Amino acid sequence: MYLVTGATGSLGRRIVKQLRSDDQLTRAFVRLSSKFGELSDRGADIFIGDLKQERDIEKACRDINYIISSHGSGNDPQALDYRANIDLIDQAIANNVEHFVFISVLGVDRGYEDSVTFKAKREVEKYLINSGLSYTILRPSGFANNLIPLAERFRDTGIYLSIGEQKNRSSIVSTDDLATIAIASCQIEAAKNQIFAVGGPDSLKREDIPRIFSRLFDREPIVINPPLQLFDGLRAGVGLINPQLNKSLGTLRTLLAHEFYCTPEEIFRLESTFAIEMESLESFLRRYVGQS
């Protein structure tokens, strides 16, 4: 039995679907307010709970062999990125879970102090490594599905908004590939007690994204590129009214200001270990929103 947290999120939903397509017993940890009907229809065991409640985590982990932690932070990284994962690890130990897969983030080890999410995930990584559990830590770059709304807007308007330096690189990963790797991590011996950078096969500059959109929809891009300083000014203004929102924008500021890409050696290691050919961003978008 697999336990998948964040089961109705963009990654978790894909993990549950793939597991159920292979007839694997799967418990999907969901909120009552989320849309989980499709997962239930696929035969997933629906566990309705709150990751902020240790009691719910304790119940969800009973009779579980594998845990895949794929939930996001919402608006509370302290409770969800950090505390919930620590509780999941503790319950994995208590229930003799065979393997724990943690979805971290690329660049988590660089010491970005402005991002609570990055700091939380790094501390969870350390705790998991020292827990004695069999584990795999996956550090993905940006999720390809996050670009679907931008692609759809471009299709309708031709406009692409991108803040900051356009030469910054990223290795945007197919969310379907990431789901496949997360599941395979539970079974592949070479993936155990390892950390993997996870990205697509291409190191893309931000300026490459509207060019991909242009090819998909056969229209010239209108690129709007405000400087990062404008974002900083707006963030400072928001901070005067809502200091908490100012802090939460630290993760977005970190993502906008830095590069998050995998080296060719990291992609080779990933593809070799998991016997997978990573899908390009253009291929992913063509499947989901491209013109036929």
Rank of each mutant, 00 (worst) to 15 (best):
Y2S: 01
V4P: 00
A7K: 02
G12M: 02
G12V: 05
T26F: 10
R27S: 03
V30L: 03
R31H: 14
L32S: 12
S33G: 05
K35G: 03
R42S: 13
G43W: 11
D45R: 05
D45K: 06
I46T: 03
F47T: 00
L51A: 05
L51N: 01
R55F: 09
D56E: 07
D56G: 06
E58S: 15
C61M: 12
D63T: 12
N65T: 13
Y66Q: 05
Y66K: 02
Y66M: 01
H71Y: 04
G72D: 09
G72H: 13
G74C: 08
D76P: 04
P77K: 08
Q78V: 09
A79N: 13
A79P: 00
A84K: 07
A84C: 07
I89F: 03
I89C: 02
D90F: 08
Q91A: 09
Q91N: 14
I93Q: 11
A94W: 09
N96T: 12
E98K: 15
H99M: 08
F100T: 00
F102K: 00
V108T: 11
D114N: 15
S115M: 10
V116S: 06
V116H: 08
T117L: 06
E123A: 15
K126T: 10
Y127P: 00
L128Q: 02
S131E: 01
G132F: 11
T136L: 04
A144Q: 03
N146C: 01
N146D: 13
N146W: 09
F154D: 00
T157R: 05
S162A: 06
I163L: 03
N168I: 08
S170Q: 10
S171L: 08
S171Y: 06
I172L: 09
I172G: 01
I172Y: 07
S174W: 08
D176E: 15
D177A: 07
A182E: 04
A184D: 08
S185E: 01
C186N: 11
A190D: 12
A191S: 12
A191R: 03
K192Q: 12
I195V: 15
G200N: 03
P201S: 09
D202V: 14
K205H: 13
R206M: 10
P210D: 04
S214P: 07
R215A: 06
R219Q: 14
P221L: 03
I222F: 11
D232S: 12
L234E: 07
R235V: 00
R235E: 02
G237N: 14
G237A: 10
V238G: 05
I241Y: 14
I241S: 12
P243L: 07
N246P: 02
N246D: 13
G250T: 10
L252V: 12
R253E: 09
R253G: 08
L255E: 03
F260V: 02
T263P: 03
P264K: 10
P264Y: 10
E265P: 06
E265G: 09
I267G: 00
R269M: 05
S272P: 01
S272H: 11
F274P: 00
I276Q: 02
E279K: 14
S283A: 12
L285W: 12
S292I: 12
S292G: 12
S292D: 09
